[in-house]
Design a binder for these strands. Structure first.
Lengths: 402, 402
DNA sequence: TGATTATGCTCTCGCCTAGAACAAAACATG
DNA sequence: CATGTTTTGTTCTAGGCGAGAGCATAATCA
C-alpha cells in the first residue's frame, strides 16, 4: 500500500535493496555511516559496497568523512548528493504561500514566502505557479516531485472542499499548470503535519499514533506504522466533524451538527470572544489571543480555558476509540497545550474510560511548529519517489540528460 | 508490521514466494487453479511448477482436477492437503463455547459446542482446555496454531477488561494451559468479526473499511488493507465510547459521559422501553424487541426507530472522521439495519458533512452472522502461520516427525 | 483424425547476495 | 616513532533464484 512492493525476482531484489538503502539514508537524516547502514539493513559488507557505489554513481548520495572517528578503519557518512534529488513543497494557506526545497535526509530550505489577501484568487495561484516553475528551472533536473499542502479536503489529487475558503471541487494541479511534471501530489495540511510528526517528530517509531493539527478548526490523522491514514478517498482525519465536546444541536458550516470544530480552533476561540475577524487574519489573531491570555488578560484567559477543555475532552474520546500510543499536537493545538496543559489534560481525563486513566496516552506538543505541513509535504514526495519506479526514473533521466 | 517481511537474500526470496503462493491459495479459498495463481502472482510457469511441487511435497497443498474444463491442457485446482495445516478456533462467550477447525482456504467445521451458565467459572475453562487438547491430539501434528475469541478487551495476550463478565487482567492462555503450544493468539470478538469481514465478507479487497459489531453496546474496528487496527495496547475499536449521538451530559458505566453506547445496542434499546432484563438475557431480548417492532408493535417500533437513528448518526460521524470505503454491520447492528434501513441511512446523512452526501460510504449488513468471530479467529491464526517463519516451522516439524 | 489451444516440464542464462580472504586506514601503546 | 589492534572497505567465488525459451502434453473443436 503506497509504493513499497516486495520483490519477486532477483532483478527486483537489487532495486528493492537499493530502495531500502536510500530510505534508510533518508530516514536517518543523511547522518548515518555506511557501516551503520550495513548493520541496520542486515547486508553483507560486499553488498553494501556495490549498492552505495551505484547510488553514488547515480548522484543520489555522496560519502563524506564523519565528525568523530572511532577506533578502526574510518567509515563515511552517506548523505545527500549536492546534485541529488530534491522535493519541492508548496504550502498554500489562507493568508500566504511558501516554497520549500528538501533534499534526501530531510534537510530543507524555504526558498520563498509570500503573503496574500486574496483567498483563492486566480492570480495567487498564477503567482505560485510561476514561482514553482522558476525554482524547477533553477534546480535543473533535480526536482523529483512537487507536493502541495492545502487547508482543505483532498480527493484523488483534487481539492474537494475548503470550508473556510469557499473552494469546491477545484483541480488545483491543472490550475497550477504542473500537469507536465510526472510527480505532483496534493495533500491536506493536517494529514501532512501528521506525516511530518511520524517521520521527523514525536511519532517516530510509534506503532499507532494520533496527530491533531489545529488551525481554524481541527484536523489530523491516525498514524499507523509511520503512515497517516488518508481514507478511501483521501479525506480521513476530519476529526473536527465528530461531535466530541459541545452542544449536539448546534449547526456547523460543514452541514452537520455539534462538530468539535465549533468548540476548538481559531474560529471557535474568536467566536467565544464575540469578535469578528476576516478569515485571512484569524490564525494570527488567535495566536495573539493565546499570548494575551498568557499575559493575564481575563477575557482571553477564560476563552482559552473553555477551548482547551473542549480540546482535551475530544482527545479523551478519540483515545477511547483508537487507543493510540501517543498523541501529538501541532499548529494552534501546540500553543493551546503549552498555554493550558492542565486544562487540556483534565478535559481528557474527564472523557476517558475509567480503566484507561491508569495509563493514558502521552500528549506532546509538536516541536516542528508551523513548518510541520511543509516537512510532511516533502516526506510525501519522497515517499512516492523512493520506490523501485522512482529510482528507475531518476537513473534513466540522468543518463539521457547527461 | 505483522510478520510479512520483505526478502533481502535469494534464499529468503524463495521463502517469500512460497509464502505469497500459500497466502494466495488461502485467500482464494483453495478454489484457484495453478494457472490462475501463476498469473495472479506474476510468476513464470517454471517457477510455479517448482513452488507448487515444494508445497505439495510438504503436504501443505494438494492438486485436484477442476470441475469445469476449458479448452487447452487441463490445469489443476490447488487446494488444502488432507493432512495439511489446521487452525483451531475457540469462541468463548458469556453463555457458551465452541471449537472450530479451519483448513487452508478457510473451509471450517465446528467440532464441538457447549452451553454453560457459569460465566468465567474455572471449570468452564478447564472443560475448554481439555477439549482443545483432545482435538489437538486427534489432529496429530496438523494444528499450527490456536486462536481464542473473547468478548473482552485484550492486551498483549491477556484479557484486560470484560465489563459484562467481571473479568479483570486474566491470563487466559495460562489458565487454559496452552503455553506449550508455539502459536496461541487471543482476540477481541468484535475485532475478529471485523477480520472475518475483511477476509471472507463484504470488506474483501477494501482499502479502508469500518466494521461495527453491536451487542450490548457498540464495538468494531477500522480495517486497513485487510487488517483491523488493534491499537497500541490492543484496545482500539471502542467506538461506543465516543459521544456520537446523544445527551453529552449523561454518565456512562465506563466512567465517561455522552457515550454512543448509551444510545445504541441491546442495553440502550431495553432502557428506552423502561424494561429491566438481566445481563445474560439482554441480547436475546433485544432481538425479540426488533422482531416485535417488525410485526408492528408500536412501543418497540418507536424504540427501534430511536436507536436506529442514533446508530445512523454515529455512523455518519465516523464516516466524516475516517472516510471509509464501506461500512459493515454485524451482530445486533445487522438486525437493526435490516429492520430500519431508511432510518439508519437518514441518521447517517444527517450527520454527514454536506459534500460527502453525494457519494456516501456503502453500508452493508454482514452475511457471516454468528460465525464471524470464529472465522476471524481462524484467519488470525493463519495470518501468524503463513509467514516465512511458519513455513520453516512446518517443514522442520514434518521432517523430524516423519 | 488432425488442428487448435492452453498448460506443464526442463534447461540454460543472467542476476543477486553471502561469505571468506585480503587490504587499508585510522587509533592505542609502549 | 614504530608496531599492534581494530574496524571497515574491496574483491572474488560459490550457491541460489527466477525468467524465458523450447518442447511435451492433454484436453477441446471441427
Amino acid at each position: 500500500m503506497g509504493g513499497v512492493h516486495a520483490p519477486t525476482t532477483s532483478t527486483e531484489l537489487r532495486l528493492h535493496n537499493l530502495t531500502r538503502l536510500l530510505r534508510a539514508v533518508h530516514a536517518g537524516g543523511g547522518e548515518l555511516t555506511r557501516s551503520q547502514l550495513t548493520r541496520e539493513l542486515g547486508l553483507a559488507r560486499g553488498t553494501a559496497t556495490v549498492l552505495v557505489s551505484e547510488l553514488a554513481a547515480a548522484e543520489m548520495v555522496l560519502e563524506r568523512p564523519p565528525a568523530d572517528r572511532p577506533r578502526g578503519r574510518p567509515t563515511h557518512l552517506v548523505g545527500p548528493h549536492p546534485r541529488g534529488p530534491v522535493a519541492l513543497a508548496a504550502d498554500l494557506r489562507e493568508d500566504s504561500w511558501s516554497i520549500t526545497a528538501a533534499a534526501l535526509g530531510g534537510a530543507s530550505e524555504t526558498l520563498e514566502c509570500r503573503h496574500h489577501t486574496a483567498g483563492l484568487a486566480t492570480d495567487v495561484l498564477a503567482e505560485l505557479s510561476g514561482a514553482l516553475r522558476r525554482r524547477m528551472a533553477e534546480l535543473d533536473g533535480r526536482v523529483v516531485g512537487i507536493g502541495i499542502s492545502v487547508p482543505a479536503s483532498v480527493r484523488d489529487g483534487r481539492v474537494v472542499d475548503a470550508v473556510h475558503l469557499g473552494w469546491h471541487d477545484v483541480d488545483l494541479v491543472s490550475l497550477l499548470r504542473l500537469d507536465g511534471h510526472p510527480l505532483v501530489r496534493l495533500g491536506n495540511d493536517a494529514t501532512l503535519a501528521a506525516l511530518a510528526e511520524a517521520r521527523r517528530g514525536a511519532l517516530r517509531g510509534v506503532g499507532l499514533g494520533l496527530h491533531l493539527h489545529v488551525s481554524l478548526g481541527v484536523g489530523g490523522a491516525l498514524v499507523v506504522g509511520g503512515r497517516p491514514l488518508t481514507g478511501a478517498r483521501g479525506m480521513a482525519g476530519e476529526f473536527g466533524h465528530l461531535p466530541l465536546a459541545g452542544d449536539p444541536g448546534q449547526a456547523c458550516a460543514c452541514g452537520s451538527r455539534g462538530c468539535w470544530d465549533l468548540d476548538v480552533g481559531a474560529n471557535a476561540l474568536i467566536r467565544h470572544l464575540g469578535q469578528d475577524i476576516p478569515v485571512d487574519r484569524r490564525l494570527d489573531h488567535a495566536e495573539r489571543l493565546i499570548a494575551l491570555a498568557a499575559d493575564g488578560d481575563p477575557a482571553s484567559g477564560r476563552a482559552v480555558e473553555i477551548i482547551a477543555r473542549a480540546f482535551g475532552r475530544g482527545i479523551g474520546a478519540l483515545v477511547n476509540a483508537h487507543d493510540p500510543e501517543a498523541v501529538t499536537l501541532s499548529g494552534l493545538g501546540a500553543r493551546l497545550y503549552e498555554a493550558a496543559p492542565q486544562t487540556v489534560t483534565a478535559g481528557c481525563e474527564e472523557a476517558l474510560m475509567a480503566f484507561r486513566r491508569q495509563s493514558p496516552a502521552v500528549i506532546t506538543a509538536s516541536h516542528l511548529g508551523a513548518a510541520a505541513p511543509r516537512i510532511g509535504t516533502a516526506e510525501m514526495v519522497f515517499d512516492a519517489f523512493l520506490t523501485a519506479e522512482g529510482l528507475r526514473t531518476w537513473r534513466t533521466h540522468r543518463i539521457t540528460s547527461a
